[in-house]
């Protein structure tokens, strides 16, 4: 238990009628990357804000390094770093001035600051931009500067809210390599993301939907929840396709996503031919029909439909 840096139990937060976070429970161990995954509005940002001590909660317990965050949010602030989704640094200050500001706020000694500043800027390929105003950086570089400011002191817990949204692939890779090196030093990272490929880089995942926990476990355990594979079928009329596939043998769920239909099936090779025959027989117009890798959305839809069936029965 002592290596559990974060313990969350029954966390609930309401905004008026809306329950943004609904009796959420999870934990995070020392030196692990825990991914918060879910669509927009799932409650990821609200949960991270409560953990960061910037938003009060309505019910539940949040312990970070054993300290009660909901009762005494200020106590843990020197031990954590929080990077909000929106770029939160001073655009009218330079890269170096931003870093220095946060170093002073966290009382990092001068020698440590200089050493870490060099190291962090080097790792993120930003050494040349030290004297550039933060407002003149690209989206990816802004994120990296945010990380550099968050890591100028050595936090025990790093909270990152969608750090890779709108970031180019190169910067994303650099960002993840920084996170891995942190974990190596024993830092715990909570990172929210909407990308499944990133979710797979996490040690464990917390899937959220409408404020609730859908799943909590390793990425492999998550994939195992989808028994089969996803077929993508393009069509001018996905609704008609959906009606056609519903109730077909081997079809576990079907969701229209724009102009394509995603169908979760038990055995992709067998069902591909079966569905094609079905559509031709029923004279439903369809275009390309192929197997695709499961996206986070597919797993969601499946897990949600499973839950609803469970609740129904």
């Amino acid at each position: 238990m002592s290596d559990e840096i974060v313990q969350v139990d029954g966390l609930t937060k309401r905004f008026g009628e809306v329950v943004a976070v609904n009796s959420l429970s999870f934990n995070a161990r020392k030196g692990e990357i825990l991914g918060l995954v879910g669509p927009d509005g799932a409650g990821k940002t609200t949960a991270l804000r409560i953990l960061a001590g910037v938003l009060p909660a309505d019910a539940g317990v949040v312990l970070i390094t054993g300290q009660d965050v909901l009762r005494q949010p200020e106590v843990i602030k020197s031990r954590i770093s929080y990077m909000p989704q929106q770029f939160g640094l001073y655009e009218d200050l330079t890269v170096a001035e931003n870093i220095r500001f946060y170093a002073d706020i966290f009382e990092v000694s001068r020698t440590v600051r200089q050493q870490r500043e060099d190291q962090l800027l080097e790792a993120s390929g930003m050494s040349r931009f030290r004297d550039r105003l933060a407002g003149q950086l690209s989206g990816g570089m802004k994120r990296k500067l945010g990380i550099a400011c968050a890591l100028i002191h050595t936090p025990q817990l790093l909270l990152l809210d969608e750090p890779t949204t709108g970031v180019d692939p190169v910067s994303r890779r650099e960002l993840w390599s920084i996170l891995y090196s942190l974990v190596f030093e024993g830092v715990t990272v909570l990172v929210s993301t909407a990308y499944l490929d990133e979710a797979e880089r996490c040690h464990r995942l917390l899937l959220m939907h409408q404020g609730r926990r859908l799943f909590f476990g390793t990425p492999d355990e998550l994939k195992n929840m989808l028994p089969g594979a996803v077929l993508s079928i393009s069509s001018p009329d996905p609704q008609a396709l959906q009606t056609a596939v519903t109730g077909e043998q081997g079809v576990l769920s079907a969701t229209a996503m724009g102009d394509v239909l995603h169908v979760v099936v038990d055995d992709p090779d067998r069902r591909l031919a079966q569905l094609r025959a079905k559509f031709e027989h029923a004279e439903v117009p369809f275009g390309e029909l192929r197997r695709i890798p499961a996206s986070v959305e597919d797993v969601f839809v499946y897990v949600i439909s499973q839950q609803e069936t469970e609740q129904g029965s």
């Binding site: 804000r49 960061a52 001590g53 910037v54 200020e74 602030k77 020197s78 954590i80 770093s81 929080y82 990077m83 909000p84 929106q86 770029f87 939160g88 640094l89 001073y90 655009e91 946060y102 706020i105 966290f106 009382e107 945010g146 400011c149």
Partner: peptide, 14 residues
Amino acid sequence: ERGTMEQLIATPVT
């Protein structure tokens, strides 16, 4: 307005 408050209040500054 510039969205810098959220990060600021997550620090130990009083």
